[in-house]
Write a protein that binds this DNA or RNA. Structure first.
Lengths: 340, 340
DNA sequence: ATTGAAAATGTAATCGATTACAAGTCACTT
DNA sequence: AAGTGACTTGTAATCGATTACATTTTCAAT
């Protein structure tokens, strides 16, 4: 009746071995004999034993918690990345806590303080504005992994997508449709994503013998609002590009919405390519042609890098950077150049 | 040099008291004399002591983890609720792990299994499709709190917004603008949110001596896509309402986008009110008039209900339901009836 | 001054798993 | 037969905080 919790000792008794053996059978199977191992596993099944992560964490001197710093929880772009991280981390018995970096200033000192307070075993930073200071001598520091965007001054491992290829794919798609007058809606100037997407896009243009006129590079900052502003800029141009590469889906939505409001049609008057492939892109009317980032995979990879770093804590962890591929998703906002 | 971790014992030595006293001074200040309390606090400051949550959790027989079940992490509606929950929970030293309920079937048994595996101290359910089975006799069950939407069969505490008032506010706003031909885009039929929003909206109509013709209640399911479909339905009506109340912002966006594509203008041809006030609503062009849900507060409240339930674990926790107010946010998708 | 209850503090067991170290078993060599 | 090394297993200390229980202190009442 009294539904007491089953601990490792109960399993040990049932299996007729010591608690140490049970522990080893479960976490280091190669260290116990075939026979005892299966006896232990049987006992586990019989008793319905579940490991107590809290006790394990205490003994292992870790908290079992990884913190993710998200610049803007409201941005749907991050949700699936979170999903990926969480699913990967849970395999290791780690759980993910999500922190909106807006809530906790950007002072490096504050960052460390936060990490320390939360006693997180590690940190995943998705906000390029944040730089976590390097280990102070003598302090054992939790590993940090950057994901998606990061400042070049930051050191540590990281995972990102192949933004350059993304830019290239977007432009090549437009070229293939016969467009020769192609403009961009850029992301924030100093943002590394803007740089590499632009590089790839320019490379594709050059390869086709084309160039980007300076006034066809409209400024933006990845937000809906800036996309809408860019549409007004576009409409005001004396000579207008017939195709635009928007460096985020949100900007593309803003751009298209405002364009429509101004009486222009997409893709009839102008073709639009986005970047990200957030969920809403599929349902938007018309469906947005865009560059898909493997967001779930980005999350998984970031988590893997982190767990890796946790294991070889001591070793001089050389930073490793993973780059994931992107993919062109053709929907309805792009069409062959009119009158071609 | 050797940056050892500071534990309660170190503080005890500095303060010249026992570890028990330090512990009490920190977690049950009223049990300790004024003098020792400040001595302990001084020692804490001097040593830079931070409590080790893992050890505390082990001793307190809890995991320190609350799981939130989200139907769709990709839906921006939930992000700020998460934010609220996390900030409230962290005050209690609890951390939030986020689970996409799509990832883990809906079988009640699976639910419990999951809860058990994760050893969560509690569960916050934001998915109306999920019903967590009541405690099985003898099993000590973690408390469950429902948020936003829940099935009437589910028992336990919950927090939601005043959906009825929301429906009423939306319609009253349209009435005030001179509209008398008002239609709805509904949410999923069996969904409780749909019911109460509709009730409120109908009440407002009736109060004005109006009715809802059956064919002006367009069906939907809260998604963008269904909003777009509703727009086509609207356009196909022999007699069209001049104002529509969409029961989610996402549907409103789909509705407006499709409408625009069909050549109708919002709010010139039809006024639209949404529900939720998700971030994007402000930036949409035109800005969406909608009913704001205090999402952060919903998250906080859910977390509070849960921590409450955790404290009086033993007592027969009578379910308590909190209802939070909503607010009309007027933007640009509503206008006075044309030709009034 | 003595007493007794209330308040403050200390001692040590406890939460549940891991692991250093010790000890035991076994096969094989010399 | 004794010795060697490889492999298994067991004993008990440990992680850091909480708290039941025991003990001491305080202070008002007699």
């Amino acid at each position: 009746m009294t539904n007491k919790t089953i601990k490792i000792k109960d399993v040990a008794i049932v299996a007729g071995v010591s608690t140490a053996t049970v522990s080893r059978a479960l976490s280091k199977p190669e260290q116990v004999s075939e026979a005892t191992r299966s006896a232990v596993l049987d006992a586990v099944r019989q008793t319905g034993y579940r490991i107590n992560q809290t006790a394990r964490n205490l003994r292992k001197q870790r908290s079992g918690v990884i913190a993710a710093l998200i610049p803007d929880l409201g941005n749907p772009f991050f949700s699936q990345i979170l999903s990926g991280m969480a699913s990967e981390l849970s395999k290791e018995g780690l759980s993910l806590i999500v922190v909106d970096s807006q809530q906790i200033g950007f002072e490096p000192a504050q960052m460390l303080e936060f990490l320390y307070m939360k006693q997180a075993d590690g940190l995943i930073v998705l906000d390029g504005r944040i730089i976590v200071p390097h280990a102070t001598a003598g302090g054992s520091r939790s590993p940090v992994v950057y994901a998606c965007e990061w400042n070049s001054q930051a050191d540590g491992s990281g995972v990102r997508v192949d933004n350059e290829s993304g830019g290239r794919l977007a432009v090549e798609h437009l070229l293939a449709l016969g467009h020769t007058d192609i403009g961009f809606v850029l992301g924030p100037q100093q943002n590394p994503l803007t740089g590499s997407r632009k590089d790839g896009a320019l490379a594709a243009l050059h390869q086709a013998g084309l160039n980007l006129p300076a006034h066809w590079a409209l400024s933006g900052d990845f937000t809906l609002d800036s996309g809408a502003k860019a549409a007004q800029d576009w409409a005001a141009l004396p000579v207008r590009p017939t195709a635009m590469f928007c460096m985020s889906d949100q900007m593309a939505f803003g751009f298209i919405a405002e364009l429509t409001r101004l009486g222009y049609a997409v893709p009839d008057d102008v073709s639009v390519v986005g970047f990200d492939d957030i969920e809403i892109a599929h349902y938007f009317t018309p469906g947005l042609t865009t560059i898909r980032q493997p967001r779930f995979a980005v999350g998984c990879e970031a988590a893997k890098l982190l767990t890796c770093a946790l294991q070889k804590e001591q070793k001089d962890e050389q930073a490793s950077h993973t780059v994931l591929p992107v993919e062109l998703i053709v929907r309805a906002t792009t069409a062959a150049r009119e009158g071609t």
